[in-house]
């Protein structure tokens, strides 16, 4: 079965997942009673999730811990069977785990980038992947040469997996996950635990890979640089529901009730009663300030600032995405 560009590469249609978690009061008596009469609480991990990804689309899947991101990812990768709704990946129901589908998808987890025996070399692992995914020899060599160059794998090929650092494991794990050129890629926290340089390298590689191969990518990450580097579209999930689905650059506008007004006075050291205009968020050299201003009042505040002060520079910015999300998660928890 093939998918046309009109058919979504990934489709979640009312997807829901409930878990039954055993519960009991504390104490020995309750522990004994739970043997005879176990009690359960239903945990609604995912509720009525609706979204579709076009072929070649790269989307970020954001949300706080416990929001249902990994559960959704597991359902779409075929590991979990939902309790409600359905899903299609490349036109197939993922939890049927048809080989024709499994050969065209990949799940990369930052917490466990490279599976398999650790005594083997990276090249051994990649060769096993070739066999597993039935990649023709010429195609394997071509893909491996390309991935090897982009991920700088040359000196890792002959090394045992157990001797690799986390960053090297991630590079080798990406090569193992991508050597069969999956058409749909699920990335679960791909830069977790990596240092700044390694994370940047992985991000750059993934951005290039997605553009070059037109693979559909669904990414979960708590690192906003990952999302900003890779995704134009984001889905924000909250308590198992999609709270925002749209362009990344509109996310802050949707969620943050404030904007930042950065002002540099024309005269260094000039003072003003900034609190009259907004909440001072930052103070910099030369009297520069960043004011947090309610979105609706920004035009009025900007007008007043320009009218009343000698201003050298004035800029209106959306607040940093990380701050917006942190605030959103906090409000959600409350």
């Amino acid at each position: 079965m093939t998918t046309s560009s009109a058919t979504p590469a990934v489709l979640a249609d009312g997807l829901g997942m409930d878990f039954r978690a055993p519960v009991r009061p504390p104490g020995l008596r309750a522990a004994l009673a739970s043997v005879v009469r176990p009690r359960y609480r239903t945990v609604r991990a995912v509720r009525g999730l609706e979204f579709a990804l076009r072929p070649g689309e790269v989307a970020g899947f954001l949300g706080p811990n416990g929001a249902g991101k990994t559960t959704t990812m597991k359902m779409l990768a075929g590991i979990l069977h939902p309790t409600a709704g359905t899903a299609r990946v490349l036109g197939r129901v993922p939890w049927r785990r048809e080989r024709s589908l499994l050969r065209r998808i990949a799940l990369v987890r930052g917490s466990r980038p490279l599976g398999g025996p650790e005594e083997l070399t990276v090249l051994d692992t990649l060769r096993f992947q070739r066999l597993l995914y039935e990649v023709p020899d010429a195609e394997f060599r071509r893909n491996l040469a390309e991935l090897g160059e982009l991920l700088e794998l040359a000196e890792l090929m002959g090394r045992q997996v157990r001797a690799l650092s986390l960053g090297e494991r991630m590079r080798a794990g990406l090569a193992a996950a991508l050597v069969h050129r999956p058409r749909v890629l699920f990335l679960d926290e791909p830069t977790i635990g990596l240092d700044v340089a390694a994370a940047a390298a992985v991000r750059a590689f993934l951005a290039g890979y997605a553009e070059r191969t037109a693979a559909t990518v669904l990414l979960t990450s708590h690192h906003m640089p990952d999302v900003e580097a890779l995704c134009r579209r984001v889905l924000l999930i909250e308590r198992g529901r999609v709270r925002y689905d749209g362009a990344l650059d509109r996310l802050a506008a949707e969620l943050a009730p404030h904007q930042l007004v950065r002002v540099t006075p024309a005269v260094a050291g000039a003072t003003a009663e900034w609190e009259r205009f907004g909440t001072v968020q930052e103070r910099g050299e030369g009297g520069r300030v960043a004011l947090r201003v309610p979105r609706a009042e920004v035009p009025r505040v900007v007008g007043e600032l320009l009218a009343r002060l000698p201003v050298a520079e004035l800029a209106v910015e959306e607040p940093p995405l990380e701050a917006v999300l942190a605030r959103f998660h906090q409000e959600d928890a409350e």
Partner: peptide, 12 residues
């Protein structure tokens, strides 16, 4: 340890 879940995503 969860590694079994990884094998379910592979065509094997």
């Amino acid at each position: 340890d969860g590694t079994f879940a990884d094998t379910l995503v592979r065509p094997q």
